[in-house]
């Protein structure tokens, strides 16, 4: 008996020795390939933007709201994205304002309060919600939300900043919930028990133990939710009203960068100036998400030092 157990142990360690190196390599390759993919995407966008990177008037690009990419013959084109930039940022901000509290609350409920069948049901429901295609969310904005907003606010156009924010927000809720729930579930139960034994209530545990303990995971969830909202195209196109203007009210129609690319890529002749400029829009999105991620990273590092 002792002999045979020793044998299997030896075999096991031989086995793991043999596989250790290849597995290490595999992991390395996976790590590097994501970097390679990122670089490839960046090169692809830069190549698409091509000659327009040097030809474009960058000051006008960022400060003007005038977007006339394909003027009639004899007229000057204008490439001002200020309105779209504002449109993208404002819909995203509104979406986060909705999705973060909703998503966190749902995650807390599922992870800490719901039990048994209710919990299972909610998790399934969440997966279903996550599987709804974005075009369907767009339809919901168009057919359901737009008339409601028209009625409530007494405005002409129900497809606007508010509509877009709500639709994009609701869309990113399932993602935020499932990632936040993972983060909360990963908090060791010993922490809950310790706090409970000190007389803390369940809510206190949520705010004073779980949120600090799961901070990184929760922040990552919010970032991915933000990524979803900022990068969404179809729903944004249908729900925002797609009007190239800086909104002065929450019920004003807006236009997002993604929707512009989606709507105009088909009609812009290949390799035309318009076509190249659309790639520059893609580059702007790329930079925005990059900046958001770096800031999130810094926030995580910063709070780590303080706590």
């Amino acid at each position: 008996m002792p002999d045979s157990t020793r044998k299997t142990r030896v075999n096991k360690s031989l086995l793991s020795d043999r596989f250790e190196k290849p597995i290490e390599w595999l992991i390395k390759i996976c790590g590097w390939s994501s970097l390679a993919a990122l670089t490839a995407i960046l090169i692809f966008i830069l190549k698409g933007a091509g000659p327009m990177i040097s030809k474009i008037n960058w000051v006008e690009f960022f400060t003007s709201t005038k977007w006339v990419p394909s003027p009639g013959t004899g007229n000057e084109p204008h490439y001002g994205i200020l309105a779209m930039l504002v449109g993208t940022l404002s819909t995203t901000a509104l979406a986060l304002l909705i999705s973060v509290p909703l998503g966190l609350a749902a995650a807390v409920y599922i992870s800490e309060f719901a039990t048994g069948k209710v919990k299972e049901f909610l998790k399934v429901l969440l997966e279903l919600l996550a599987a709804i295609p974005s075009i369907v969310w767009g339809f919901i904005g168009l057919m359901v939300l737009a008339p409601l907003i028209q009625n409530w606010f007494g405005v002409q156009q129900g497809r606007n900043l508010l509509n877009g924010g709500i639709v994009l927000g609701l869309m990113s809720v399932p993602l935020i919930v499932s990632l936040s729930e993972d983060a909360l579930r990963a908090v060791p139960d010993a922490y809950r028990e310790a706090a409970l034994a000190l007389g803390a209530s369940k809510w206190e545990i949520v705010f004073r133990v779980l949120f600090p303990a799961a901070r990184n995971g929760l922040l990552a969830a919010v970032m991915l939710g933000l990524g979803r909202a900022i990068g969404e195209t179809m729903a944004a196109l249908l729900a925002t009203g797609h009007a190239n203007q800086i909104p002065s009210a929450i019920t004003d129609p807006v236009r997002t960068i993604t929707a512009t690319i989606a709507a105009e890529m088909g009609e812009a002749p290949k390799n035309s100036d318009h076509y190249h400029v659309l790639f520059i829009l893609g580059l702007v999105l790329f930079v925005i998400t990059g900046v958001v991620n770096v800031v999130a990273d810094l926030v995580i590092k910063g709070t780590k030092k303080h706590v």
Partner: peptide, 18 residues
């Protein structure tokens, strides 16, 4: 209130991650 008067120390030290 009960747990205020009756404190507990566990087998595995469990300080909170704060």
């Amino acid at each position: 209130t009960l747990r205020k008067s009756v404190g507990m120390v566990f087998q595995r030290p469990n300080p909170l991650p704060i």
